[in-house]
Nucleic acid binder design. Structure first.
Lengths: 350, 350
DNA sequence: GTTAGCACTCAATTCTACTGAGTGCTAACC
DNA sequence: GGTTAGCACTCAGTAGAATTGAGTGCTAAC
């Protein structure tokens, strides 16, 4: 089926005030109780001074317009994806609680270590804050210039190309040569390689030596190995935090299995998050993201930028009846801190 | 409670042949059906020419001795952990099927990339082979000598220490200096750092310069950062494959949640696997590993060695009623290939 | 020691009746 | 016109009661 559904920017023939209030009450109640919501509950909890009968007749309209659904005739109403969408679109931005704010602050004040570690730990943090499964995506450094490229000899035939990029990331690639190489030759090749690649980006055309001696061959092999990587996906990193939360969010074991199976496929997760960001959304509800097995899930995302350009995202995955305002607030707060951590912290600070 | 249970090497007051056959039949049947096994089923499937009544009276004994248990009076028998243990200890080594053998061969023939990638993919492979959740643990390179230590300048105040170890692993650590450093200074510091650390192991005492100029300070900071790492755990890596399989193996959502929660804690997983290996076992059943939340799990492990000394392990986690012979065969086959891949492949080949 | 026979147990299943939350409709009301 | 009280109706869920049947333990005979 449609892998990605292009959502128009909400036709949202705005509901009148009372219908909106009723819809909101249903959503809130359903998120709370996970049960279908009846007209009398709405009449009681919403501050509308109307009877359940009135609510009932409004509900009929809301159902006809696709915002609500009825599991069966004698049950209350449940929000549809469209209903959640309306709710989310008209949600005043939530804010994170005191305690959580503090937890985030503490975390970023104390976190240390390299980018990967920070991202992995951030993922755990985000999951703990919200008790949903979190996804942290770091996009590759395809565009970063090379700061340094060294060749290190493991043994006579195995060398390692260690490359440092301007964004601080480091890669290694092993090179197996067809002949024994001396340490002197490796050192010389390393010098040449460094001179050749410094300041370039992966995939750029460089002038490799055409001689056939050991050193030149080694340099050619190293360059070839480096450039052999698919440049777009290289370095894409996904960190899943709190996958056990999946088992809390959904009740059917089968659903849990399906969601976990999706989360195992990093490429899928990256493209899911990317799709949502591409559409300029911060939430994808149920069928909106076009992944059938995640039909009962909602995904909240917030982009992370470094030096102003997008370089990743944090996300939360929960049931469609997730606590959107909390989740969105947490995701935004964490992504903001992360952004600040990487470009504030790495340049300006101290 | 007891975090680790020391198991004596099976008192195993060996059962007589008929009891053993009956126990085996119960275990086999139960693994197959997940149901309590009745005496008549045993009489039918085992090749003992005895009636169900005879089987019944033997079962009473087996139950009294702790090999079997009865969920309730009018149900069949279910193996206890002790029952599984006897079964496993007397299991003739299984072999992996044709197709799987081929799949493993193909995988290792085609796999490329760095150690981390290979381990991560191996984890996925192992999980696919067995449809259990797999765990691949790579132990750190604490004992590896440093082949190269370079300092790379990210900007005036940020430097990166990139260290290459003899086993081919690479680490990076960022260093933030309190003053601006020129490229010339970084280059000089890098040279000195390399000269200082080459051939040493992490944690070794090295003679750092005591001068107070920029270069010396930089070198001191770099060394301090490197040595600040907890040397024992540094580089311990855990790769979990097929966590969605957890949802297939257990039926209660709560059990699934608990197991996933354990798997999220890498340190726990490492120590679990390490414990089992330390006890010289290849299987830990139910309570044997002392992790309460994993009481209904069994863990199969196989060590991976590089150059003869232990450097990791592969494992499988399933329900206590897992298919032990298959799982053990798969784990052994994969660990053997992995061992060969890393020391065969990396030294001898071509 | 083995086994056929039998009474007994108890989880699981099926059936029925009932409950009650919630609806849709209508007629009266403001 | 919109609102509401009243009422008949629907139907999932629950609670008992009855039934089933797989499997046991025991005993007496072989």
């Amino acid at each position: 089926m449609a892998r990605r559904t292009i959502r128009q920017p909400s036709p949202s023939a705005d509901l009148d005030a009372r219908k909106a209030t009723i819809l909101e009450a249903v959503v809130r109640e359903h998120i709370d109780t996970a049960q279908p919501v009846g007209s009398s509950a709405v009449a009681a909890t919403s501050h509308l001074a109307v009877s359940s009968a009135t609510v009932r007749s409004e509900m009929v309209t809301l159902e006809r317009e696709g915002y609500l659904a009825q599991p069966h005739t004698s049950a209350g109403r449940v929000p549809t994806d469209k209903g959640y969408r309306y709710f989310v679109d008209h949600l005043q931005a939530g804010i994170v609680g005191e305690a959580q704010q503090q937890q985030i602050k503490d975390f970023f004040a104390n976190v240390r270590g390299e980018v990967e570690d920070v991202l992995a730990q951030t993922s755990t943090l985000l999951s703990q804050l919200t008790s949903y499964t979190s996804v942290v995506v770091g996009t590759g450094h395809a565009q970063s210039a090379i700061l340094s490229a060294q060749l290190v000899s493991l043994d006579a035939r195995h060398q390692l190309v260690v490359t440092v990029f301007a964004d601080g990331s480091v890669t290694k690639h092993s090179v197996l040569s067809a002949f024994d190489v001396s340490h002197v030759e490796v050192a010389e090749a390393s010098r040449q390689l460094n001179a050749l690649l410094i300041g370039t980006v992966l995939g750029a055309r460089v002038q490799v030596p055409s001689r056939t001696d050991h050193v030149a061959t080694l340099v050619r092999e190293a360059v070839a190995t480096l450039h052999a990587e698919p440049p777009t996906l290289e370095g894409d990193q996904v960190f899943i935090g709190g996958s056990s939360k999946v088992a809390e969010s959904f009740d059917g074991v089968e659903t849990v299995r399906q969601v976990l199976a999706i989360l195992e496929q990093e490429l899928l997760v990256v493209s899911l998050v990317q799709d949502i960001l591409d559409q300029g959304l911060s939430v994808a509800i149920g069928s909106e993201h076009g992944f059938q097995p995640l039909a009962s899930c909602a995904v909240v995302v917030a982009p992370v930028t470094i030096d102003g350009h997008p370089s990743g995202a944090v996300g939360l995955l929960g049931p469609t009846r997730m606590k959107y305002s909390e989740a969105m607030a947490a995701a935004r707060a964490v992504s903001a801190q992360l952004t600040q951590h990487f470009d504030g912290d790495d340049r300006a600070k101290s």
